[in-house]
Structure formats: C-alpha cells, structure tokens
Design a protein around this nucleic acid. Sequence first.
DNA 1: ATGAAAGCGCTAACAA
DNA 2: TTGTTAGCGCTTTCAT
Lengths: 335, 335
Amino acid sequence: MARHAGVSTTAVSKVLRNAYGASPQMQTKVRAAIEELGYRPSAAARGLRGQTYTIGVMLPEIRNPFFADVLDGVTEHLNGTDYQLLMAQCCNDVAGEARLTDAMIDRSMDGLILIAPISSRRHLQAVARTVPTVVVGRHGHSADYDTVTDDDFAGAGLVVAHLAELGHRHIAHIEHLEKDPVRLVEMPNAQRADGYRHAMNAHGLADGINVVSTTYTQEGGYLGARQLLSRDVRPTAIFAGADIVAMGVFDALSEAGLSAPADISLAGYDNTTFAAFGPISLTTVDQAGHQMGGNAARLLLDRIADRARPTAQVKLSPTLVARRTTAPPSSQGRS
Amino acid sequence: MARHAGVSTTAVSKVLRNAYGASPQMQTKVRAAIEELGYRPSAAARGLRGQTYTIGVMLPEIRNPFFADVLDGVTEHLNGTDYQLLMAQCCNDVAGEARLTDAMIDRSMDGLILIAPISSRRHLQAVARTVPTVVVGRHGHSADYDTVTDDDFAGAGLVVAHLAELGHRHIAHIEHLEKDPVRLVEMPNAQRADGYRHAMNAHGLADGINVVSTTYTQEGGYLGARQLLSRDVRPTAIFAGADIVAMGVFDALSEAGLSAPADISLAGYDNTTFAAFGPISLTTVDQAGHQMGGNAARLLLDRIADRARPTAQVKLSPTLVARRTTAPPSSQGRS
DNA sequence: ATGAAAGCGCTAACAA
DNA sequence: TTGTTAGCGCTTTCAT
C-alpha cells in the first residue's frame, strides 16, 4: 500500500491520523492511493499501539425502551467522530458483567459506557482504572469514573405529589427487592423507593405507605399487584417503580376485573414507548434517556482526552408525564 | 508473564489455545501463573494473527422486540463458546450499513450476522467474501452467505385464511412501500404483501384486495389506517404488515372512535411482547425469532469452521397467534 | 515436547 | 518534511 503510493508507511500513518508533518502533496498522493486500493486501516492492529476508536456500551436489557433512548443519545453524540459504538447485552448477574467488561478490555476498547451495572463498586473501580469509563444510571461518587444519573429520588416524589394532589391517601409502591447494602444506596430502584417514602411522609401520608418488594419485570409487577389487591386495605393508587412493572400491574388488574384509573390509579416510571402508546396512556416519569446518553458520551470523550481530569457527576431532573391512568380516587376505592 | 512461569511465550500460547504439544506439567505450571497474575490474553493482538473470537451483529432497530428475540437466540447458542457477541445498531440507510460492516471488518471480527439489511446484494456479497456472514430476515440465495428467514409469504397467507374463515371478505393490508427491484423480491415486507395478494385470490376474495403503502413504523400504521378509514368502502379487517404498524392502526382507530374487533378486526405480524400484552391482545404471526437467531449462530460457527462449505438457506415456518383483536365482521361494518 | 525467531499492520521515537 | 527502526502481544513455522 505504501509502496503503491511511493511513500513510506510512516507517511501513510501520518496522513491517516492527520498527524503533524505531512505536506499537502504527500496528503493528496496518499489519499489517492487509499482511494485506488480501497484501503482500510485495521483497527485491530492500530489498537496494539494507539487507539481502536471503539467504544463499548454494556446494557442490561435490550427490551427496555429506556435503554434504547440512552443509546440514541450516545449514538447521536458520537456521530461525526471517528468512534464506533459496539454494544453488548448483559446477563443480569455479576459474573456475567465481569466477563463482559473483561471482554471489552481484552478487545482494547478506548472507553466503556456501563448502563445500570449491578457489579460491585470495587469491580467498577477496577474497570475504570483500566479504561476510561462512564457509569450511567447508578448513583454514588467515584474518583475513577464519571456518572450520569437521573434524580430518581425526586422522580418518585413527583409521582407521589401528583397522586396526593388528585386526592389519593393510600398510595402503594412496587419496588425491586434489593438487599446488597451498597446497591441499596446506589441503585435507581432503591432511590425511587426512598423517594416514595420520603414524599409520602412529606405529604402527611405516612399511614398510606405500603411497599411490596418484587422485581422490575412484568412478572414482578403482576405478582406485586396481586399481593396488593388481596390485602384487607386496598390502595387507591399504585406507583410501579418502572413502566415494565406497570405492565404486570395491568395484567393483574384485568384479571381481577378492575381497570385504571376507574378502580385504581396507576403510575409507572421511565416513559417508555409502551407508556406513551394511546390505548395504554400510562402516567409515568420521563428520565430524559436521550440526554443521559449524550452526557455519557461527552464525558467519556473528555476522559479519553484527559484521563487525569477529576470525575464529574451529572444528575438530570426527571419530569412527570401525566396521562390517563391516574385520576381522583373513586369512592368505592376507599376502604 | 511467560518469564514468571519460567517457560517460553510459545508454551503459554499453546496452553491458552489447547494446542498440540503441551505436557500436563507444562499446562499446570502455566495455568498457575495465569491465575496468579490475573493474566488475560489481548484479543486485539490475537486478532493480528489468529481469531478475535468476536462476532458482530448488525441490527436495524433496537426497539423492535422481534430483533431482541433473534438476539436472544444468537446469544444462547453462543453461550459456552469462546465467542463474544458485539452488536451495533444501524441507521436505516445504505451508506450507514456499509460504514458499519466496514467498521466490523476493520476490527477483524470472526463473523457477522446481519439482521434485515437493506444494503444492495452486491455489497452483502462483498462483505461475505471478506468475512463469514449470515444474513437474517432477507430472502434470496447467495453462494457467499447463508440465510435464515421466516416464510413471510406463508405467514401472510395464515392471516388472510384466519380472517376469511371468520367471514371477512374485505381485508385491507398496510405494506411497507418498496421500490427497489431487488429488495422487492428479497425483503420480508414485500413477501408479506405478495403472500397477502396470493391468499386473497386463493380464497376468492380478489375484490376485497386493498393495499395501502406506507412504512413499517407506528406513524406508517397511523397514516395507512387513516387512509383506509376515509375510503368509501371501509374494510372489515386490516392486516398490518408488522406489529409496530398495528400500533399505529390502534391510534387511528381510537381517534376515529372505533375499536378492534368490535368495529374492525386487526392483525399484525411478529408476535412482539406488545402484541402479547394483555390489554392489547393482538392477533399476529409468530416468527420464532429465537429459533432464527439460534440457526444464524449455528450457521455462522459452521462457516467459520469451514469457509468452503456450500451455503445454506434456512426457512422457518411462522404460526398464527389468534388473540382478541380479530372476530367475525360486525353487520354495520359491511358496506 | 519445547523454545527461538519471524511477522501480523500499525504507531512512535528518532535520524536524516 | 520524510523515512528508518523498533516495538505493541500474540500465533506460527521451524529448529532443537
């Protein structure tokens, strides 16, 4: 290739990287040869010395549209740069996450964006010390990685305020069961549950606090709702910790011959496309996933440029999206 | 690392790859050193000589749950192997697809799975000649790449048969507008439209043929349905070419104060989680995305093992999933 | 069975 | 401004 252009490989390398020390005529000569031979530099070989121009994104679940929003934000920010985004879905267990981060490091990626990781803090730190890393959707400072989060505590408060304003006093919450002490502080689900309790107290609704612990899945929502519906005192509103959980609640409601908001008000969290869908029209909280992704990408590129820069914590504010599944409590709902 | 174990780098390499020529004692010695140093082989450097153990998946749209199903099938089949899956979302335009396939080739991936690509056949061939490739969700033979498809023609037939059996005679179809002559034959959307026409004729419903061309998006479904509803002769049933299109149809129906199946029957295609969701309960066609993914992974590994093997075309049979959005036509629906 | 040496396609330090 | 040279961390002949 270099021979074809009649120059040295160094020259080619320089032109490719727009590095210092390449005359205009050299540039044209090399570019012509590149064009002619359809030459493409091997990112793999390049990675042995310099950068691979590859950024890895780890996502826990591809089906959750919220993560797709985040991804769009990342993609958009990276458009026009030389970086290529490669993502991998992860398996929802700590060992799998470690395997995946290792795999990305082995492939000498230039930077990693970890979305809602469940790994130990210790592992995240180790990863971040090896390769520039941004953690999305997990609270907690670190000197090694930047973070982008949504203010989940405040978001839960928005939901409670909305329902309280409609006149609900007995507002139940379905949370994702969390036992690990670190994650209990850092995971969004825990923050939402805390925010719920705090807001209930703040609105003088301490008596209406009612939490069911399941998982952030449709199944979890279904089981949680069944539990709530079977209790002596039935809540007039349910705040599901995620839209996907609300889907499960819908299932349980229709099974019980109930509907929202006629019999019970229902709110979710994430503003997924599912929530926005007309026939559903779920009241929910918008996390601005797009912005989160954009911020993550920006922070990552900044860190790649300067690894010594102090870490940043970006916290975005959620907004309530009131739709048709929430309404004032029906009289029969009170008990 | 080799020094730490007191052996040559060659020996380490051999142990790592379970290659011939490593005594048991050598094995243990090396493995001990690996453990001790927490050593990880660089997949990047490895790629310069041998394989990278990386498989790339290109998907057009991460939000479509059908693609997630396919991905699950691929992942499951690859579990337990040394291969790591990395995916990238593509931009729905030919140039972007080319950029992405190039990027994956530059990163010396061992194999590619292209899901529903819109690139020219020529480009696909060029890619497949460079790296083992399996094309999913696109009809048409090639001597260079294996294919995995669903029998879309037959699937459309299932829908028409189901509706005809219910007594519908005027069944409209919303298709994805396709002009490119090659894609007109190879793309699933075109096959579905063909299958629809064929089945309508076969059932003696040639008069009821009514096709609207928009796009396979929610917006496309909305616009298509509005067009159908505004015509003099209103169909008693709508066959949307994809579940996502059916979502748009729902929007248009509720806007017009109509509902399915009371006023009009509605069927989709893909059996996405959305269709299965209780309150929706959309009649649709199941493509067995999971199986498609598994087959794609299997074919790819086979091809990586033997690049000369003749290509295979796997065509899976879809099944109808009758749910609650289809019913016999209401009398007022006839016009 | 083992290890020395060459080289995969690049980039970076240096010399010309 | 240019080209020469020495690696990056692996795999792969080919001697030993």
